[in-house]
Structures are given as C-alpha cells and as structure tokens.
Design a protein around this nucleic acid. Structure first.
Lengths: 202, 202
DNA sequence: TTTGATACCGACCGTCCGGTCTGTCATGCT
DNA sequence: AGCATGACAGACCGGACGGTCGGTATCAAA
C-alpha cells in the first residue's frame, strides 16, 4: 500500500472527498477530521500530500471544480450553434434532480462568494477558472456569429459575462430557496434572452 | 451612559459594525473581538444585547441587510413604469464606485452563499428577505402590465426571479473578479433583457 | 541485504475564539 | 435615601480544530 501508484490514488481520494465536503458546507465550515474520516485515511496521510488546509482547498479548485465545470460545458464549446447547445444544456440541467448543483449550488460560485474576500489565493484561482469559462463561451459565440447562428451585432464578451452571471445567480437563488422552481424560472429567462441573440441562419 | 436610550444606541452601533464586518469578510471569518474593538465596546456589552454570535448574525440580516435592500428598491416598487425605474437604478449603481457592493458584493447574497448550507436559520431569514424583494418586483411588473408599460404576455413572477438572479450573479462575478467592467456588462445585458419586456405604452 | 526514501499512522500540541461569570456603577422607582 | 435592576466591563475558560512529530512499514535502488 505504499507504492507511487497507490499514493496517487490516496491523493485523489483525499481530493474527491474534500471537494465533496467543501461543496457540502463550504471551505471554512468543513473540517479536516471529517475529510479523513470519510476518506478512511489518517491525518498523517492528508498532511503528507497537502501542506495545509489552504493548499488542499486550492488543489480542489484547480483539480476538481474547474475541470468539472469545463467538462460540463464541452458540448457548447465544441458546437457550431452555441445557442442551441446552451439551450439544451440548460434544459438538461433541470432534469438533474439528483445533481448536487441544485440543492447545494455551483461549487465554484459557492467558494467564490465565501472566500474571495477572505483569501486572495482562492479568489485568483476561481477567477482564473471563471475567465476560462467566460472565454470559452465568448469564442463559441464568435464562432456562432461567423457562421450565422448568432446575431452579428451583439458583443460576445458582454453576452458571455451576462450569461454566466445569470446562471450562477440562478443556482445561488435556487440553493438558498431550496426550490428547483427558481432554477426553472431562471432557465426560462435565460432561454428567452438567448432567443434575442439568435442569428439569421438558425 | 446606562440609560435605556443609550443602551439602544449601543445596540445599534454593534449592529452596524457587525454588518460592516460581516459584509467585509463573511460571517464565519468575522470575529467578535474585531467587532467589539471597532465598536469601542466590551464583550460584556455585546453579549448583553445578543445571546451569541448567531443571534447577532440573524439580527444583522433582519435589521440591517434586509431593510437596506428594500429601501434601495423603493423607487422601483413605487413607480408606474418599473422597467424605466429599474433601468435607471442599474445605471445609477454603476456610478457608485464608492459603494461597497461593487468590491464586496451584495451583503445578502454573500451571506446566502456562505451560510445557507451551514445554518438553516440564516437560510430562512435571507430567503424571507429575498421573497419580499421578488414579490415587490413581481407586483411592480404586474402594475406595469396593467398600465401598459410592461408586455402583458410575460410571467411577472418568472421575470422577477430571473432579474434577481442576474443581478446577484453579476455582483458576485464582479466581486470575485474585482472588476467593475463585469458589473457593467451585466447591466448592459439586464437592460437589453428589460427592453424585450417593455409594453406598448412605453 | 542493506539503505534510503516515500507513504502513512495517530497521539499530542497550541492557539484562536466564542462564550461565561463575577463585579461595578449609573439609573430610576419607591 | 435605599434598593433593585439594567447596562456594561473585562478577566478567564474550554473546546474545537488545524497542524506537528516521532514512529513504522513498504518499496526501490545499490
């Protein structure tokens, strides 16, 4: 149980459990003991792989939350018609009743709101991921403009920002209200907005 | 310094400073010592007026954050043309460079994202305030529909929810990015959206 | 096989911070 | 005046929790 490969497995397990716990109750409220208990490892193991709680948090953002977010949006980033892709992504999200994002909010946004004023490192890392997300949408919209699926006169960057804000805001509201209906209303608004930016080809 | 009137002043001072600290670094990260130091009072005074930190937090939501939010939206709630009122409110907000809401986010939303999963009491109180806000917008939109300033076919409740989500999302993004440009982009999107729901009379 | 390093264990530590508790003094009612 | 009560003051407490540290077991190279 002490080879390099198993060490990596241990690290991943810590990362996964920590991500879960952070998503569940936030970074400050989650405690190391809970993580090691759930992961079935010792405190020594955790502190062997991560310098401290902060470093673990940073790693969760970089290696779990950010990749997961990007992966979720892959269909949009690789689509010719970003509006159609986003629409179906939003509709799909409503059916994920089991998805933790609905009851617990978006992990990235949760962390952003909790930590950005307290810890600059978190802010920077989250912002980095958000920028990549925003950039992905922006590029998709521009591609859509080039091939006629998106209205040419809109500002892709501004639109991308507005979309992200509405999405994150919707998740946050729904989480606080514990009401999927809130998310549903946001999706409706989002789709209505998207319809105002469709191009001539669609 | 021990009369009933001065006691109320002390209580208010604690409430104000606590609100500031909570807005600055969140509920969990803010500490009692900092509050009593900034307020220039003793720990005994604080715990004389509030049972514990949690009760203080609840009071801040109920007596500081919620009223401030409602007050800010008064112009919209009392206007015949809610869309025009909201548009000018949003535009106005961009000029409040000094407003803490830009660099520190919306206090209510910050707390919601930080605490709603950790403390049900916070969730309930914040949700209550949010519902009142949402209701105010909803009623304003309906009034607007009645007098022709708002498109009759829209769903007022759904629209109100979407607007709030976009606003809160925008503040959150801007705070995390530390970039007023983000807020500006959201306002642009918000106004564009509002233009799609104007009625025939406007 | 020896040796060094890596992976991991878990008891223990130290600090921070929310909360308590005793004491004090002004106030206002009787 | 006397006294009860409210409004504070601030030293002290206790527990939770992040972090440490000496030890052990396994693996890999020499």
């Amino acid at each position: 149980m002490k080879s390099k490969a198993t060490a990596e497995i241990t690290r991943q397990k810590i990362l996964d459990i920590a991500a879960e716990e952070i998503h569940l109750c936030g970074f400050q409220a989650c405690n190391i003991s809970a993580i090691i208990n759930k992961a079935g490892i010792s405190k020594g193991a955790l502190y062997h792989h991560f310098e401290n709680k902060q470093a673990l948090g940073y790693a969760v953002v970089d290696e779990v939350f950010a990749p997961k977010m990007i992966a979720m949006w892959k269909p949009v980033f690789s689509s010719d018609d970003p509006i159609a892709a986003m629409t179906s992504l939003f509709r799909e999200a409503l059916n994920w009743t089991d998805c933790e994002c609905i009851s617990r909010g978006c992990p990235m946004n949760n962390l952003a709101q909790e930590m950005s004023q307290v810890d600059e490192g978190f802010r920077l890392r989250i912002n980095d991921a958000m920028c990549r997300w925003q950039n992905g949408i922006e590029l998709s919209l521009q591609r859509g403009q080039a091939n006629g699926y998106v209205k040419p006169e809109i500002n892709a960057k501004q639109t991308a920002i507005f979309l992200i804000a509405s999405i994150e805001g919707g998740y946050g509201l729904a989480k606080n209200a514990q009401d999927i209906g809130i998310l549903s209303a946001c999706v409706t608004g989002l789709i209505a907005y998207l319809e105002t930016v469709v191009g001539s080809r669609a």
